[in-house]
C-alpha cells in the first residue's frame, strides 16, 4: 500500500471513529439502533444505500467541485440526525420491518457525502488532489462506519445479556442521539 493511500485511509477512518465526530457517528447509531442483527436485509440495505449515495456525492464533488455552502451542509447533516434519531424516539425504539429505511438512508447519504467532501477538501493540500487520496479517504470512512456498526451490535448484545430489550436499548440510544443533535444546533 502506498504511503498516500494508507495516510488518507487513516484520516478517513478516524474521521468517523472519533469521539468528537458526533454528527456522522450518531447518525449511524440512530439509523441502526432499532434494527435487529437477525433482520440482516433491512440493515444491510440501509447501510449499503447510505454508503452508495455518500460515495457518489463525494465522487461527483471530486469531478465537478460544485460550490456548496459549508454552513448549509452542517445544518443539513444535523437535520438528518434530528429526523433519524427523532424517528427512533417517536416509535419508542420499535423496529418497523416494513419501513423502507434504505430510502431515508440513501437520501441522507448525499448530505453526509457533501460533508465528507467538504472535510476531505481541507485535508488535501491545494493542487495535490489525486484519486488515490480520494480512494484512501473513502475506504477509511467505510471502514470507520463498519467499526461503529460492529461496536453498536456488540453493545446491544451486552445490554441484552443484562436484560435490556432491543427496543429499550434503541429508545435510549435514540434519545441520546436526539439530545446531542439538538444541543449541536445551538
Amino acid at each position: 500500500m502506498s504511503d498516500a493511500l494508507s495516510l488518507y485511509l487513516e484520516l478517513g477512518f478516524y474521521h468517523i471513529v472519533d469521539i468528537h465526530a458526533w454528527d456522522h457517528l450518531l447518525f449511524i447509531v440512530a439509523l441502526m439502533a432499532p434494527i435487529p442483527l437477525k433482520a440482516w436485509k433491512p440493515w444491510l440495505a440501509a447501510l449499503s444505500a447510505f454508503t452508495l449515495t455518500h460515495t457518489t456525492a463525494m465522487a461527483v464533488q471530486a469531478l465537478a467541485d460544485i460550490p456548496l455552502n459549508k454552513s448549509w451542509i452542517e445544518w443539513g447533516v444535523l437535520a438528518t440526525l434530528w429526523v433519524t434519531a427523532g424517528r427512533v424516539v417517536w416509535l419508542k425504539g420499535a423496529h418497523q420491518p416494513r419501513a423502507k429505511l434504505w430510502i431515508l438512508a440513501g437520501l441522507f447519504g448525499f448530505i453526509h457525502g457533501a460533508a465528507f467532501w467538504s472535510d476531505f477538501a481541507i485535508m488535501v493540500p491545494e493542487g495535490a488532489f489525486t484519486w488515490e487520496l480520494w480512494l484512501g479517504f473513502t475506504a477509511g470512512v467505510e471502514g470507520g462506519q463498519l467499526a461503529v456498526v460492529a461496536a453498536l451490535f456488540v453493545l446491544r448484545a451486552i445490554l441484552e445479556q443484562l436484560g435490556w430489550s432491543l427496543r429499550d436499548t434503541a429508545l435510549v440510544l435514540g434519545a441520546m442521539c436526539l439530545g446531542i443533535a439538538l444541543h449541536l444546533a445551538f
Partner: peptide
Amino acid sequence: LLVGFVSADRH
C-alpha cells in the same frame, strides 16, 4: 436528552 444537550460540541 439533558446529558446530550450539555455535553456535545460540533465536530
